[in-house]
């Protein structure tokens, strides 16, 4: 007589992302152990996204929790587990934009949509001329700190666009849909944001 093998309880941390999401979707309510493991794997992605999208918000931790509450409520609606990362990013981004609309921040944006004056004052960013030599500092903490500050200082629309591209890896079409502008505007904003960052950090990037 064949005896059934004792069913081993599989630890969630040994599951693949795909299986983990399926596990979280199973049952009347999302499996909390599975969801905790998903948080463990993807929390840094959400935090990074929010960190750059909303660098001056003091309550980003609450926003991050809110993202995961939405994940909990909606994970059953995710039909393609392999697209979880993109789905998660959209939740975080949508939440950010919802919150942004609520706050109706009145900071007057420095428009980069206006024609660029190559030698004009509008793009005359202060570049640290006496900074460290570029060869030695490309990978230094100081460089990254300067870069972080430079990104944070970008006008909102440009910062959000470049972050959705560089951090989240979204296509221009997806960014256009999210930010509700044309693909041409996305293309222009990304280029101008890059131009500004390169100008500001030219001391680090070399000639």
């Amino acid at each position: 007589m064949e005896t059934p093998l004792p069913q081993q309880r599989v630890s969630v941390d040994s599951l693949s992302n795909h299986d983990l999401i399926l596990m979280a979707q199973d049952g009347a309510r999302p499996d909390r152990a599975a969801l905790t493991e998903i948080m463990k794997r993807y929390r840094s992605h959400v935090d990074r996204l929010l960190y750059h999208l909303a660098p001056d918000w003091q309550d980003r931790a609450d926003l991050s929790q809110e993202v995961w509450i939405r994940v909990y409520r909606n994970i059953k609606n995710l039909n393609e587990p392999e697209k979880f990362r993109g789905w998660l990013s959209r939740i975080a981004t949508n939440l950010f934009y919802d919150e942004l609309r609520k706050r109706k921040r009145n900071s007057s944006p420095l428009s980069l949509d206006a024609p660029i004056l190559l030698n004009g004052s509008e793009l005359d960013w202060e570049i640290a001329a006496d900074g460290p030599s570029p060869e030695d500092n490309m990978a230094t903490r100081e460089f990254y700190e300067q870069l972080r500050v430079a990104i944070a200082d970008l006008p909102d629309a440009f910062r959000q666009t470049i972050i959705l591209r560089e951090i989240d890896g979204r296509s221009y079409e997806e960014i256009a849909e999210t930010t509700q502008v044309s693909i041409g505007t996305v293309k222009s904003r990304i280029a101008r944001a890059r131009l500004r960052l390169q100008e500001q950090l030219s001391g680090y990037l070399g000639s």
Binding site: L35, R43, D47, A61, M138, F143, I151, I167, L197, L201
Partner: peptide, 23 residues
């Protein structure tokens, strides 16, 4: 390209809160 790679690698502030507490 250098800037593109650098943005991806910007270090994040260390997360002090354990994941279980966060969850």
């Amino acid at each position: 390209r250098g800037m593109h790679a650098a943005i991806e690698q910007i270090p994040m502030p260390p997360v002090t809160e354990p994941i279980n507490k966060f969850a």
